[in-house]
Design a protein around this nucleic acid. Sequence first.
DNA 1: AGATCATTACTACTTACGTCA
DNA 2: ACTGACGTAAGTAGTAATGAT
Length: 370
Amino acid sequence: MELGLSLGDASKPFGFIDKSRDITTNNRSSSSLGFCMALSIGPNPTNQQELQLEQEQEHSNDNSTDSATTTKIKTPTNLSPLDPPLIQLDLLPNTPVTRSNLHALPWPSSDNGSCEVASSGNMARSGLDVNRLPAVEEAEDGAALSSSPPNSAASSFQMDFSIYSKNGNQETEVERASSRASDEDDNGNTRKKLRLSKEQSAFLEESFKEHSTLNPKQKLALAKQLNLRPRQVEVWFQNRRARTKLKQTEVDCEYLKRCCETLTEENRRLHKELQELRALKTSNPFYMQLPATTLTMCPSCERVATTTSATVTTTTTTVTPSTTMKPTSNTTTNNNNNNSSAEPTVTATGLSLARPGRFYPFSHHQPSSS
DNA sequence: AGATCATTACTACTTACGTCA
DNA sequence: ACTGACGTAAGTAGTAATGAT
């Protein structure tokens, strides 16, 4: 009697934000109390070209002219009027970044799309840009992130979270963080920890829900919007992925523990049943001449199939995982995947758990080959 | 075509710092 | 005020993929 159990590999993508494209509602945010940002993604030739443009832009900023910036914005190949904004953000003072005021639109593919941010309203420009990057740091990032003079057109790229800092006790992590960052910049070598503001974290979180990894354009766009270095955005996503994986590992562990308990109980029950059958067979040798039976569990429908030499019957199983399994890139799991000969089994005398995503005795549930 | 090297992006692990009880 | 636990930003080493030569 065998029970093969393949733990689920139910990959669940992150929920997507409402893909609202109602840009016309921006107009309300151009009132005196709010501002609106729209990050648009237009076709873009190549990364290198964009970087070159960024460098030109930075160069132009040094010369206090907007020529390169406007060149970038007006280049037909870079920005099409048909291209919808990537992220449209309506914010009011003291309004945190939430799903309700964040209208996220699909990310650009890694192959196209340059990121542009246009803002309406004056508050973003007039406010104190507390998290501004010194030119030195931007140079560290390969001049990928343009520095924008406060009054240049490019300054509209930057989300000005300092709006919040003007309100009472919301003096805010933004200011503290930026001042610490400035200290770090001044000292150079000292490793001061920069704590991201709630708004920055929330925005990054929203972005992470859209995509857990970033391509260079997305990274640059986020960095610009949040007034962070691209490296900071990159690190944040790395750490965020690590946290997600850690949490998922904990969930997996809990689930496997429960699975183990359930299977142990099932094993005990089957063991007992086997003993009863043996006793029955001993007392009545002509009773129950059954063929060898194999129990296999379908990983998708989570049913146990009792397989004999001729028939397959499916019954509901007693093992019902309540936790949705997400795929983990756990190295332990992956390392075990190449051992195809050791099929996981639960026998009447022993228990071994199946490895996720390997055992598909049901042809109709086999994953499509990709 | 295959080998080698540089670059890039990632993971895993670690460290350092800020916050809070 | 001090301290330890915890969360997290950032550093480091190793690895895999990719493109150029």
